[in-house]
């Protein structure tokens, strides 16, 4: 059952110059992406830094206004992109966000109880002792102790802070959580704990995730399907298994080759595809296929024509002119 259907989401940030703030161009941070999320499913959203993942997530929650696009949400099939702020209010409870930086996402001037309780206070869902009880319950469900509620964020480690952020996201009993690189700021040992916690919570509360990450190894175990983004566009989307085994887009192949293999022999034999050059400036994207300056399979057509995202087999969509002829290396 579909929980969310995103159609052609765009977010352009105007570039303004001079005292008159004239718009001289646009950063196309998100440039027409479409995907859906099933109930109980985790969709991984992967791409290099700056490709527009956070922007996409913020648009979905209407934290920033999208330039265009529609998000059809829930059984009601409501288009969230068209709602006014007031109409949006009841839907806010149903989708929440977990943030990338556990230091920046908790107000240092508030106690843990205030932070975790804030969503409930704002929405007046609980108050008084019921609120206190609920805060304790939430803290315990993310592996913190009830004494922690009177402490301030500065007393916690990165992993603990991320747990506080998760407790806050759970407070309103959402159906969908956008987790924006929830582990990329953490130590490797702590990463696994947080990923396990997120997986457990998904079962316990029947959550759906949009799980954002900048490398494929993090989303590998937690995602049912994966969408790969490059410069504001989705270049490949398919179920996780297929994507890892037989990628169809050269960019996906490069990302997979960066994932370390557990077997050292296999790791040694495997070719590591180094991506040449940097991510292009999203205000001046390349012509044709955005990936062509860095693609080792690029041909003339790639420089001129922009490939559309097309379904190449059941549930697999790719945006590449040569996807049907290329033999790409998976895990």
């Amino acid at each position: 059952m579909k929980l969310l259907q995103v159609n052609d989401l765009r977010k352009y940030f105007p570039i303004q110059k001079g005292i008159l703030q004239r718009t001289v161009g646009y950063v196309k941070a998100v440039d027409g992406i479409s995907f859906d999320v099933q109930r109980g499913e985790t969709l991984g959203l992967v791409g290099e830094s700056g490709c527009g993942k956070t922007t996409a997530g913020r648009c979905l929650l209407r934290l920033i206004p999208p330039t265009s696009g529609s998000f059809i949400f829930g059984e009601e099939q409501v288009d969230l992109a068209k709602l006014t702020h007031r109409e949006m209010q009841p839907f806010r409870k149903r989708m929440q966000m977990i943030f990338q930086d556990p230091h920046a996402s908790l107000n240092p001037r508030m106690t843990v109880a205030d932070i975790v309780g804030e969503p409930m206070r704002v929405n007046r869902t609980e108050k008084g002792t019921a609120l206190q009880d609920r805060i304790v319950e939430l803290l315990e469900s993310v592996g913190l102790k009830s004494q922690d509620m009177r402490r301030y964020p500065h007393a916690f480690s990165g992993g603990q802070r991320q747990r506080i952020g998760i407790a806050r996201a759970l407070a309103l009993q959402p159906e969908l959580i956008v987790a924006d690189e929830p582990v990329s700021a953490l130590d490797v040992s702590v990463q696994a704990q947080i990923l396990n916690l997120l997986a457990e919570l998904r079962e316990e509360f029947n959550l759906s995730y949009i799980f954002i990450a900048h490398d494929l190894s993090v989303v590998e175990h937690i995602s049912d399907r994966v969408a790969v983004m490059y410069l504001g566009k989705i270049v490949e989307i398919s179920d996780a298994e297929t994507l890892y085994q037989s990628p169809k887009h050269p960019y996906t192949e490069a990302l997979i080759s960066a994932v370390p293999l557990p077997d050292p022999n296999a790791q040694r034999k495997r070719e590591h595809i180094r991506l040449e050059g940097d991510v292009p400036d999203p205000s001046q994207p390349p012509t044709g296929c955005y990936f062509h300056p860095r693609c080792r399979y690029a041909t003339d057509i790639c420089k001129q024509e922009t490939p559309e995202l097309q379904e190449v087999s059941q549930g697999v969509q790719v945006a590449c002119h040569h996807s049907d002829t290329l033999e790409l290396q998976g895990v």
């Binding site: 913020r58 806010r92 966000m97 943030f99 920046a104 804030e118 969503p119 407070a171 309103l172």
Partner: peptide
Amino acid sequence: SDFVMAARAAGA
């Protein structure tokens, strides 16, 4: 900042 985004996401 993220903590303001979080408050906004909660509907503040």
